[in-house]
Design a protein around this nucleic acid. Sequence first.
DNA 1: AATAATTATCGTATAAATACGATAATTAAG
DNA 2: CTTAATTATCGTATTTATACGATAATTATT
Lengths: 111, 111
Amino acid sequence: MATHKTKEFSAREQDLAAFAKALSHPARIAILKILAAENKCICGEIVNVLPLAQSTVSQHLKELKSAGLIDGTVDGPKSCYCINWKAFEQFNTAFNSLFSTLKIKNEASCC
Amino acid sequence: MATHKTKEFSAREQDLAAFAKALSHPARIAILKILAAENKCICGEIVNVLPLAQSTVSQHLKELKSAGLIDGTVDGPKSCYCINWKAFEQFNTAFNSLFSTLKIKNEASCC
DNA sequence: AATAATTATCGTATAAATACGATAATTAAG
DNA sequence: CTTAATTATCGTATTTATACGATAATTATT
């Protein structure tokens, strides 16, 4: 009976949750770090660095892409991925907004 | 064959991923907002506000607690939850650190 | 055109997440 | 001590996530 009730919440909450989900696996965080560090947006080299199978890495890349966090372009037989900085900025802002929203009432905590 | 390989990644990546996972459901974000807005750390009133069963809300609270994001104290037959601001600050800092780390090489994106 | 290299997708197995109702546990009130 | 109220936990069903190998798809090279 797990008919997901995600839809019942606000769009802002859903967006943030979706972004958080994209970051909810260390492999995807590692991938983002690699993409940010390498200015060439390397592709299959990620497979060599991570302790995961090629197909698994491809799946993680797909998720990051569908979350809008990265872009992917085909470059011959290889694929080139890189961070979508625009979307990334938006999420970063949304996150900071959440943090500051929550912190407003910081003083009055009772525990 | 899904023997999770989470362990293969760095502790920092694991911590961040765990935090992101705690925020990866809109209900938990909503709960955090409620806890931050109400200076009384109300408990079962969350059940009245959210479109979820009491047991489901209790489960979400348990996850937020095990993630270290909230504290819970028993207050008679009721339970009182509130945000663990110290842990929250740590995660906030770690997140911002990740963001700024990734953004360092912003200029050199190729896509 | 054939081959090699690279990457995406498919199929599949297992684990984890999500949700609910039912029930147990706890405690205030009577 | 009983009862009522509140919350946590258990059992369970379903969906989603995670992982891999195998295979298909794509393209550069020969």
